[in-house]
């Protein structure tokens, strides 16, 4: 019998953290070895399956930060710690850790785009990522949509973290505006030695990347993480194909020099 790559494994929920009104982080008990930027196919039998990026991982667990937007994610939000759901993976390439080595890294994240880069940032925070410096630019729709607030707080004590929201609120004292504006205002000291990761909604990624290019960052030093419809995660279903590239196989993280060729 051939191994069935579609067969999911059961995983128990250890903890659930509420991030925002509609975003929850599910901590799963698992020994799966994952890399930052990879994703899992998450499923609940009789409801469906959906690709979800891994937001963090550690010894014997991994985190999935899930937004309540579809059939599957809706159902996931009805679960409690101790309940189980199904996973298979990890899939995709993840972020190119080796290429980041000893470089200055700027991460620009939009909304839930912060989830796939969270583990990478935490590695730096825990001194297990060998990079020279890290700067985080994060944009959210509104103050109520800010993800990982306690982490952001914690991180900002160690490295520059800039947060902006599209729409402020009465109590919001921080910046209002798009991530692109944060990039425009950046003063990048070692342009050639700077690597950039951009993750977020398609338009945010498009304009933020263009902004970095204006800042003379080489297109070979910018990485983007794509989000596409996927039904398999293993290069069969065809939904995520762009040109001759399968996002689930060669991505979801692409060097901008490659991403620029991937026209939808």
């Amino acid at each position: 019998m051939i191994r069935n790559p579609y067969m999911p494994q059961e995983a128990e929920i250890l903890k659930i953290f509420q991030e925002t009104d509609i975003n929850y982080t599910f901590r799963l008990k698992t020994d799966l070895k994952v890399k930052s930027g990879q994703f899992l196919e998450v499923s609940i039998p009789r409801i469906g399956e959906a690709p979800i990026s891994v937001s963090d991982f550690g010894d014997g667990y991994l985190d999935l930060t899930i937004r309540k937007v579809g059939r599957v994610t809706q159902a996931l939000h009805n679960l409690q710690p101790g309940d189980k759901f199904f996973i298979r993976g990890p899939y995709g390439n993840g972020f190119p850790i080796d290429k980041l080595k000893d470089r200055r890294l700027i991460v620009a994240a939009g909304g839930t785009g912060l989830a796939p880069v969270k583990s990478l940032i935490n590695q730096y925070y825990n001194d297990s990522l060998e990079i020279k410096s890290l700067q985080l630019l994060a944009g959210f729709k509104s103050p109520g949509d800010i993800l990982f607030s306690s982490e952001l707080e914690k991180w900002s004590k160690k490295f520059p973290v800039e947060i902006t929201v599209d729409r402020g609120s009465e109590n919001w004292k921080g910046r209002v505006g798009l991530v692109t504006k944060l990039v425009a205002d950046l003063d990048i000291s070692e342009v050639e030695n700077t690597m950039v990761i951009v993750v977020g909604p398609p338009l945010m990624m498009k304009f933020t990347t263009q902004e970095f290019v204006k800042k003379k960052i080489s297109i070979g030093n910018i990485y983007l993480s794509f989000e596409r419809k996927m039904s398999c995660g293993i290069g069969k279903c065809g939904h995520c194909k762009i040109d001759d590239t399968y996002v689930c196989l060669e991505g979801p993280v692409f060097e901008y020099s490659k991403a620029i060729q991937l026209l939808d």
């Binding site: 051939i2 191994r3 069935n4 790559p5 579609y6 293993i234 290069g235 069969k236 399968y246 196989l249």
Partner: peptide, 13 residues
């Protein structure tokens, strides 16, 4: 090509 070669796994079905 798609079902047996593309990606790391063969499609068992």
């Amino acid at each position: 090509a798609i079902f047996l070669q593309n990606g790391p796994y063969e499609d068992p079905y």
